[in-house]
Design a binder for these strands. Structure first.
Lengths: 212, 212
DNA sequence: TACGCTAACGAACGATCGTTAGGCACTGTC
DNA sequence: GACAGTGCCTAACGATCGTTCGTTAGCGTA
């Protein structure tokens, strides 16, 4: 209640968004179970009971955090993998936008990744289904590329999952105070993914040192 | 070393190992904070108080789980990245063994990744330092390859971290009942990593669709 | 027989958990 | 000026948390 905002108003809408934002930061730092309602309340500057005027339960806050951060990106970008139109260029573009988007939403993404099991079963399943459709779209798109002869990937499924691991992993190590902007890192990953990871003829067993 | 027992005796060595094994499974499934001492005790078939004869605290169990699963692998394999002797072959071998080892120890690895912050500060720092040395060894090795002309990676640091994300991500999607053995997946990743991801001349911006 | 050790027990400790009940101050509407 | 709604409060609920207590049964050794 610092500023009921006649004009300017740094926080739009109010408490609910504030709680979501603060709780997501706390959950990302100390995990969902590691943060109590009292901790959230005191970080917001409010009594624990007051939170229940905005959310019906603690899990409801988690719902609001995870809600559609991931799904929104997927829904908005699946078209780039459409089997009928997918190209190396559209793949590169998707990788780039994926990396940038996931970094921009890194807090919610981290919570969504780590605390998926704490979500209500229905919503967790919904998120999982959404991710699965994204995965499948990648696999299918790579398969198209292989069939079309312009992607020499050896195993489309393994390649897709490796690619997704690679670009989802950026958030785990990237730091903004380093020498590279996230956009640069994103473009490097697009290059590594499409030209390198997927775009290499699979001359197998040339000199690979078989393990005993 | 599975069974030093003279006869019968279904459990080798004893309770301590049994508790570690059961607790790590529970922690991996429901998280460290999501599993109480009572749940561990009842899974072991013992009263909660009895666990304190084997461990001084709950965090002590976590210590025993994470202990040196990761570090043992790193310490045993760093030689493969020795700047003086590293080759594409040794890199391929390391990727393969990394994937297989991490899958075989997937439960402890999952707990170690997810619950690192729950560890005592000293031990957490030790684990982090160990991982960091592995990372740095990869970066350095790739740099050697680039200088030597046999690895055309664009940015050694980014490439190394992308590579590690890729191979660390396998555990998140691989399932044993699929069509591929973990060894096959491991070798595919070795191929993708060394031949594809790292081994591609960096013709940049050929036709990449710059984002607005 | 007496001692010490290990491994386990049932019961309880204080703290913290998510949540709820009931009330107070303010706001805009009729 | 009465009324409903909103936002927040204090206080407390029952449950569960990690942990500690005192005790005991069994075993090997002096």
């Amino acid at each position: 209640m610092i500023d009921p905002e006649p004009a300017g108003a740094s926080e739009a809408g109010g408490r609910r968004e504030e709680i979501v934002e603060i709780a997501s930061r706390l959950f990302a730092e100390r995990s969902y179970r590691g943060v109590g309602m009292r901790a959230i309340a005191s970080a917001v500057g409010v009594q624990p009971a007051s939170i229940y005027h905005h959310f019906s339960s603690k899990a409801d806050i988690l719902d609001a955090i995870i809600a559609d951060v991931t799904e929104r990106f997927i829904a908005a970008h699946l078209y780039l993998l459409d089997p009928k139109f997918v190209t190396a260029s559209s793949m590169r573009q998707l990788v780039t936008e994926h990396v940038v988007y996931f970094w921009q939403h890194r807090i919610a993404e981290a919570v969504g990744l780590r605390e998926l099991k704490e979500l209500s079963v229905a919503r967790a399943e919904h998120v999982r289904r959404s991710r699965r459709s994204y995965q499948d779209a990648w696999i299918c798109a790579i398969q198209v590329g292989v069939s079309g002869g312009w992607l020499p990937a050896q195993n489309p499924r393994v390649a897709a999952l490796a690619l997704l691991s690679m670009i989802n992993g950026v958030n785990a190590w990237y730091r903004e105070d380093g020498p590279l902007s996230i956009a640069e890192v994103a473009e490097m990953h697009a290059e590594m993914a499409v030209t390198g990871l997927l775009g290499r003829p699979s001359k197998r067993h040339v000199d690979s040192p078989r393990r005993g």
